[in-house]
Design a protein around this nucleic acid. Sequence first.
DNA 1: CCGCCGATCTTT
DNA 2: AAGATCGGCGGG
Length: 188
Amino acid sequence: MSIDLSLHSSSVGPALLGAVVHGPNGSGRIVEVEAYGGTEDAASHACRGVTPRTEPMFGPPGVLYVYFIYGMYHCANVVTGPAGDGQAVLIRAIEPNEVTEAMRTARPTIRRDEDLTNGPGKLCAALGIDRSHDGLNLLHTDSSVRLVIDEPVAPAEIETSTRIGISVAQERPWRWYLRDNAWVSKPR
DNA sequence: CCGCCGATCTTT
DNA sequence: AAGATCGGCGGG
């Protein structure tokens, strides 16, 4: 591993661009992320401290935090920072290494390949990630969901913006994505 | 308990 | 622009 996941999520976030996520249905490189802080970040699930749902967020860096949202979708996060802090990086979009039949079966109604994984709920559905994977170690080679961090992308390729879909702490510029990448999520 | 609403996506 | 769909969390 070439980056230190125990650093703050706002440092780890951009460093995770280009890393490869492997799930039950396939794999892809991360092209878009958002950082969430611990209890001091009002937009983070960790802002109210440890609850049954957020307990994995307060584990050691490298843990997977999967939450269920809008009654329908799952979102996947990489826990960062020191254990006990509750920081995480939301994986918002990936570019598949290869579009597999399992990914197409998991998202049968898409019109273009990009719609398989160009959003946090979409990529979890495509890769087959759900709450059963919550809390596992992303760095362990035996895990059914894992993270392979190779070379970082060139800083010149990285674009920054504010976070999407939140109603508080909207000013923090904690979203990063690869410029001109077709798999980055589309504005609503 | 009860009610609100969310780190979303699809359809109209 | 609104609907789908449900669990987590706060308030009473």
